[in-house]
Amino acid sequence: MNRVFQGFVGRVFSYLFSLWVILTLNFLLPRLMPGDPLAALLDPASSDYVFDPEVRAALEAYYGLDRPLLEQYARYLVGIFTGDLGRSIRLSRPVGELVASRLPWTLLLVGTALLLSSALALVAGTEAGWRRGSRTDRALVAVHLLLANVPVYLTGMLFIHLFGARLGWLPMAGGRTPFARYETLLAAALDIGRHLVLPALTLTLGMLGVKFLLVRNTMVTVLGEDFMLVARAKGLPEGRLKWGHGLRNAVLPFVAHLAAHAGMAITGAVFIETLFNYPGMGRLIFESVTARDYPVIQGVFLVVSAVVLTANLAADLLNARLDPRVLEG
């Protein structure tokens, strides 16, 4: 038990360490970059000069470039923990507010896609692994190999064209109908749901390939293990063999990869939100990049990193619950 606890503490510690690295990186990067991009914002001679005096004052106060580096760092950290992520140059709004308004959309999109792709990958991967070498298996592997290599924006474009433009079944862009006022909660949910279908489907397919191949290949390895032979010799029913022993073991690497997949999903979301004009963080990144809105880029980077790291920790702890060997090392 003690060793388990130690393992747990170790995980949390390494999580906090990574978080600190991210925070520091975010602080140092703009200040160490050649050409001093932040100074350029305040330099009337530069092309990036911010003309709005109010925003310029806010920037000056936020970055505090004239103070010693350590003091800047201390102020930055205090700022982060009090929720101050700076101010958008483009929109003249606090970054924290911007992020807060966009994050739920991304979480909805990514969460839906993660759940859907995981469920599909687990079921299809287990079946394909169970029937390894069969025609079904080979077809599934070929399809998913293709899926794993197609950029999400290609799938997205096809969907927009087919379901949006050609068939007109689903909206082609946005997170909800513009300026709509909903009578009931259900109407709101329906509208948001309709807008979610295509982006979520695109992202699901974008992640499905990798996840399926992981489950399927692990399953094949697991089925070759001696304990599977014993389980068969015990005369257990097929369902128990396939799911109870096969998938139960194959799910471990799957969970271990969940964090990496969450990172992938966010990457995919950036493209999909851009393509579908979906009002999430990805779209925000795209917009801020186009406008060189540094405080927003940094803020989004911090929040997304924190989300991915937390997902990492959660997956680690889940894996430790699922696999008795993990924490004891």
Partner: peptide, 10 residues
């Protein structure tokens, strides 16, 4: 453990 795409963008 760092999220790569946001970092690349940054």
């Amino acid at each position: 453990s760092l999220p790569r795409l946001p970092l690349i963008i940054l």
